[in-house]
Design a protein around this nucleic acid. Structure first.
Lengths: 225, 225
DNA sequence: ATCAACCATGTAACATGTTAGTTGGAATTG
DNA sequence: CAATTCCAACTAACATGTTACATGGTTGAT
């Protein structure tokens, strides 16, 4: 017998559902989210929906406008830059910590992610590539072992995921270059060259930021549905 | 005529009240928070209290245990270390950015905070010293200009404030040393020596972490009302 | 035709009712 | 007396009702 985990509350499930819908592009940026309508769609009452929207507002994925309604976030260029900068800081710090404290685990998990990315390129399967890409960076954070930083990163990263989905149509992003960069980062970690690893991560995210900027300028104010 | 700001919602006011009560030590670490009781105390219904507790849970100040009740957070040694580490990373990044992008504003605001700290030492007024201390670090973050990082920092820092209040009785912390460190940091900024500034910040927060560890070991499991 | 007052509708904020899980202690059993 | 069962009280989760505000279209006056 082992302790059973608390089954997820309705609110948590709802939060995940709405987050997924935003990140996956099912809900477009800026689209309206009525508590009542979401509750009807999900077949539950307004309470857990309201709680979920409040949580997502803190996460930055949703803006709640008093008495007017809730809306999926609409990032401007500055948001994108700030988000990437924040990400860079956290990932650089995390990879340094991970190399110091969890070298073996770090290498193992990054290898695993790189393999998954390579498989996704071979098929090719864009969705799986994105998942493995996310996993790669998540593993860097996990290796840091600092729960406060991991939590902060997770709160930050969902916006980046949503941006990628909304700004890139399937394979706009240069996945070959991306793949190579990930492998370089892994290699730098293997060699315990933390300075190189951090430089590579900074460049990698800067490339992403540039792609975001281009994508964002092509697709300005999108306020459908 | 200028646009009026939206008056704060009951939930926001409630969040602030509870947060202040925790940070100020009015509510001790680990103490129980019943939605009903808080609502009665504040003369409002359970809804805004519930929303506030949910927000504070995300902020890390409160743990909500399903069907059991809500409790003020009870950090262990590891939490303290992780929190300080996280803080260091954000402040170091922010001061680099601030020196690059908002040098004048940074210097001016740090000078202002140092003056306030010095005045608090002269009186002496511990509470004012803490406020000015917090302000000093907040200004470093503000100078970065990165809203994502600022928001993340603010979510992180309230736990640190609460720790200081709960672990230190009035002037346990070495405020003279603290004052000197702040001045050194300011001086390093004035000289645009960002490497020195970051080193000093790391040391400054490490001193705080050490003080927390000592305070924490002296005051283990405190689960009073 | 123009414009402003008005009203119907939609919204989240807030209040309150209901339900199911948790807990601590009293009653019961050995 | 000790251990267990059971029950009453408490709790947050969730449902639903009410209210105040926002909005967009209609109407009525000019």
């Amino acid at each position: 017998m082992q302790p059973i985990e608390q089954p997820k509350s309705l609110m948590e499930v709802t939060t995940g559902k709405i987050r997924d819908a935003i990140v996956s592009g099912e809900l477009s940026l800026g689209s309206k989210l009525s508590e009542q309508r979401l509750a009807d769609m999900l077949g539950i009452s307004r309470s857990p929906v309201r709680d979920a929207l409040a949580a997502l507002q803190i996460e930055g994925l949703v803006n709640v406008s008093p008495k007017r309604g809730s809306f999926v976030f609409t990032p401007d260029m500055r948001d994108v830059d700030e988000l990437c900068e924040h990400r860079t800081i956290l990932e650089i710090a995390a990879i340094r910590m991970g190399m110091d404290r969890n070298y073996d685990k770090l290498i193992k998990s990054l290898e695993e992610s790189c393999d998954a990315m390579q498989r996704a390129l071979d098929k090719p399967n864009p969705k799986n590539y994105s998942i493995a890409d996310d996993q790669f960076h998540k593993f860097i954070l996990d290796a840091s072992g600092n729960r406060s930083i991991i939590k902060s990163y997770n709160h930050t990263i969902s916006r980046a995921k949503a941006l990628r989905t909304h700004l890139f149509t399937i394979f706009d992003e240069n996945t070959d270059r991306s793949m190579g960069e990930h492998i370089q980062i892994l290699e730098a970690c293997r060699n315990k060259d933390s300075d190189l690893a951090t430089t590579l991560i900074a460049k990698h995210i800067e490339h992403l930021a540039t792609a975001f900027r281009i994508g964002h300028s092509n697709q300005p104010t999108d306020t459908s549905t």
